[in-house]
Design a protein around this nucleic acid. Structure first.
Lengths: 308, 308
DNA sequence: GAGGGCCATAGGCCCAGGCTATGTCCTCAT
DNA sequence: ATGAGGACATAGCCTGGGCCTATGGCCCTC
């Protein structure tokens, strides 16, 4: 499970990307604020570590080799995730001079906020943001009290005193390990069938649990859960070890679904989703950075997926 | 553009994840093969670097603080990308004892292979894989010559002498910067309209260019390109600087679309996609690791997206 | 053939991170 | 009560990776 010692550090990957983009080790060094020999040595160290030449050096610059091109593209994914982390960290520091104070539900903060912050940073560099998390009730309270400029809540209604706009939807999925018999299933699972199956779920009172109960109400509600766990992470772990069908947010398992470590079960006629809303005090239309962030978040959901 | 100095190194992030998973610094240290004091010091260093306490220590273990929980989740994205890179690097080393030799087109190798390799590693740890890239013609040749056990090609037909199965589709999208007027467009762009618009494209002879030309043939083919560039990366950069509509693989811009740094333009009635196929010598059904990898890749595409 | 990019090498410095040994605190069982 | 055990922190020391400056070699261009 541990990363092998062949994986370069983030700094080295960043340097490699800069070289690929700028076409020269020296220019990349300048951009990152280090000396040319340092960059040269670091690239060389990375090649030794990986065991494959990454750059074709010439007196006119450096270009990635064939293998280097692959590493560059793979490294880009890592560095982009690191940039999102960076943006998130920056917002956690909670500085006094923040021009935008955001309070968000856990799901939004965990899975959506970093990307939004990154986009905001790109659109308006230097916008200092602070981020806190709270449950939906406290988010509403903080926004009403003027302690935050913009809030994000989960749920089907906008809290009283606030205006809101739906910015995304948290879709729930039922996932199983690839070995589970449902993983090969092509016929969708019906509501009645799902209601009759013991699932692995979050504890009572959690937002996702409520959505499931509401959706399965016509079928007599979900069966007694096979297991109740306290976090998405625990649910994922349970699913991967084959603990049976697990119901959780699609956002939490996007990666696992893409790499097929988990499999989504097709469902029939169930609306397992709840809206995620941005909220602000009624009659006090967001302005400045808040408006900008709001624009980014809403835009993501606006263009409906469309068959090509 | 450079990562701020607040971002911890991969090793530190990995350690943090282990602590969150195992509930104790000491156990995490043991899992990663370092001493407990080293782990403790490193976590503390990370907290200093980030500027926020990440763990609540107690005599019975350590749990993430509220902020720590966010950092853990964000860090998970980074580490997962690093694991994919790790799997890719491992396959690039090209060892003699490889049990599975894969040769793939650039698109497949860049965007899909790391996830597949990661999944394969998880399903069958210790399977040594080597990966090479080649254009579709050379992929076919190498598979026919027995120099590779499994190939991946792009294109609408299976090369002669080979059997194949479609494992995914490379969908092309037309993207613009968020400031472009098409970014706010709701009415889909028609084929005729697209054909009349100068686009930023890959050079003649590239696979993506061919797909576009074929799709726009009924409308007289694409207009003279506004710009011709040699790589997906260059296309992305051009799109982000607002160089006008750019047509490229959806796989290359998934991240940018999600964070809204680029916007996909809705298209009407255009089939801008080409299949990606796994290929092997006719009549020589893949077995062993090849069969396993094939199973993983095919599974990803099998369950058609379905309205909830 | 002189100058300018560009990359590599050499020598020296610094600090992050690792290890062992030990300390402090809390909990639980005897 | 009291001692054992688990968990994290501190102290002292060592190593190595990464950085810097200075310099050298190569190739292209003017």
């Amino acid at each position: 499970m541990a990363l092998s010692p062949h994986v370069p550090e983030l700094g080295a990957l960043e340097l490699l990307l800069a070289v690929a983009r700028l076409g020269s080790v020296g220019r990349a060094a300048a951009e990152l604020g280090v000396s040319q020999p340092a960059a040269s040595a670091r690239i060389k160290g990375m090649e030794r570590q990986i065991g494959v030449p990454l750059l074709e050096r010439s007196p006119r610059g450096s270009r990635p080799t064939e293998a280097g091109r692959l590493v560059v593209e793979w490294a880009r994914q890592v560095v982009e995730a690191a940039q999102a982390l960076d943006a998130g960290i920056d917002a956690l520091r909670g500085r006094r001079d923040a021009r935008l104070r955001v309070v968000a539900s856990l799901t939004v903060a965990e899975y959506l906020m970093p990307g939004w912050l990154l986009a905001l940073n790109e659109a308006s560099p230097g916008t200092a943001v602070t981020l806190r998390t709270a449950n939906s009730h406290d988010v509403a309270a903080q926004v009403l009290a003027g302690e935050a400029d913009l809030g994000f809540v989960e749920g089907t209604s906008t809290p009283p005193g606030l205006s809101g706009a739906v910015v995304a939807a948290d879709r729930l999925v039922v996932v199983v390990s690839p070995e589970h018999r449902w993983a090969r299933r092509r016929a969708p699972v019906t509501g009645a069938e799902l209601a009759a199956t013991p699932l692995v779920l979050r504890e009572v009172g959690s937002g996702t649990r409520e959505v499931l109960e509401e959706a399965l109400a016509p079928y007599g509600g979900p069966a007694a859960p096979r297991l109740e766990l306290a976090s998405s992470t625990a649910l994922k772990a349970a699913a991967m070890t084959g603990a049976g069908p697990v119901c959780l947010s699609e956002l939490a398992v996007k990666e696992e679904l893409a790499t097929r470590r988990l499999v989504a079960v097709p469902l029939d006629g169930l609306e397992l989703q709840r809206p995620l809303r941005a909220v602000w005090p009624s009659g006090q239309r967001p302005a400045g950075p808040a408006r900008e962030l709001l624009g980014l978040t809403r835009a993501v959901v606006a263009p409906k997926p469309r068959r090509a």
